[in-house]
Nucleic acid binder design. Sequence first.
DNA 1: AGATTAGTGACAGCCACTGACAATTGACAA
DNA 2: TTGTCAATTGTCAGTGGCTGTCACTAATCT
Lengths: 228, 228
Amino acid sequence: MGTVETVETATETESVEGGASSPGLRERKKRRTRQALLRAALRLFTERGYEETTVDDIAAAVGVSQRTFFRYFASKEEVASCASRLAESHFVEAVRARPPGEAPLDALRRALMQSWDGIGEAIGQLLPLEVHLRFYQVIESTPALLAAHLRRATELEEEIARIVAAREGLDPADPRPRVVVAVFGAVMRVTERIWSANADADLAALRALTASYLDQLQPALTETWRTT
Amino acid sequence: MGTVETVETATETESVEGGASSPGLRERKKRRTRQALLRAALRLFTERGYEETTVDDIAAAVGVSQRTFFRYFASKEEVASCASRLAESHFVEAVRARPPGEAPLDALRRALMQSWDGIGEAIGQLLPLEVHLRFYQVIESTPALLAAHLRRATELEEEIARIVAAREGLDPADPRPRVVVAVFGAVMRVTERIWSANADADLAALRALTASYLDQLQPALTETWRTT
DNA sequence: AGATTAGTGACAGCCACTGACAATTGACAA
DNA sequence: TTGTCAATTGTCAGTGGCTGTCACTAATCT
């Protein structure tokens, strides 16, 4: 459960890049159904709201039974967090790929920016990037989705803290990696919230906002910012 | 089915609130029922687990109908977060009471420690402090409860960020209060998690752990903690 | 006391989710 | 082409959280 949830169930040895060996009609159908469910769900969630959309609505929009929906997604919440999960796993990989020389906070920052470089391509496979970005507004304004989002965020932090600890050759019990990662995550969540509350919630705005908040980190903690 | 938590077992303490007349039989009964539901719920949650306990179980343990349970608590989740909410509101009040001269991080830290000073008294009205503290292990190990807990934590952060901004006479748009509070909250959540994973999860241990992690904050962010 | 009001239980119903079973359909070999 | 096997699906029934309604009873008010 630590990594991306690839839809591939059976590991076909044929999947080398060669001549696009037909995935098989069955697999193709499954992929189409899954994608149709995902897209219909996100469309309905953004149009009518998460709570106002029933699983039956989603299934009906695709023309399958409710039971089939639950064979593709473990829960209504999962279909809503599908794209976010993908983005998060890309961030984790980017952290893993950072050279070991960097200071932890620098590495996290660069990994984040870097993961956003390729996010359009990665998410684009699933759904339009614009839809994904706008969906963060739904997440932030829907208690159930926000709660799930925050829980995933802490799981992410745990994983990344382990990576940082390994990078720095520290004892797993050392608190410092967890602290740094938690602080970084805290800033991310603040920016995410501010950003999603804004009207123009595009990637460039998120980038700029996050950069400026990360810059504020040191001064906000050390200085005694007296008013006027 | 175990012990039936009779509603009449409570030791009635006369409220010192001025103004209105005696609590009244009706009010007293309501209060006792609510407390009985709360205690039965927490007992069952810690014994069997949150997911394994149905609302019917809780209602049956107190001898009321399921419908009555939902007249006292909006959801199964609310009864589980009842004590935490109380503790959190005490923390907020402690922050409000800090003298305006202190640096924000200092004020938050002192407010936290101070709110823990009086927490036994405050929570004790509802249930034994020990039960409350042990329940954090249930929260941390139950996805649904953890998610709800984290969402409340962010709401708390918003409120406290507003207080800090007002304290410092800053523009509500200034990002620094939010950053400081988010960082403080991040450390709190890390310590909470580590603490609850430990066997001796008492108040003194939480105090010590939090203090030590807050001390780690500056060095963890500034130094390039190269391995030994 | 009688009238009013509030708390309660019983019942019906919605929605997320799951297990079981049968019908369908693609995959593959003969 | 056809028959067999396994995967996919729909239907049905059931559980649990949660809500609306309604009648009944007990507490408060006049």
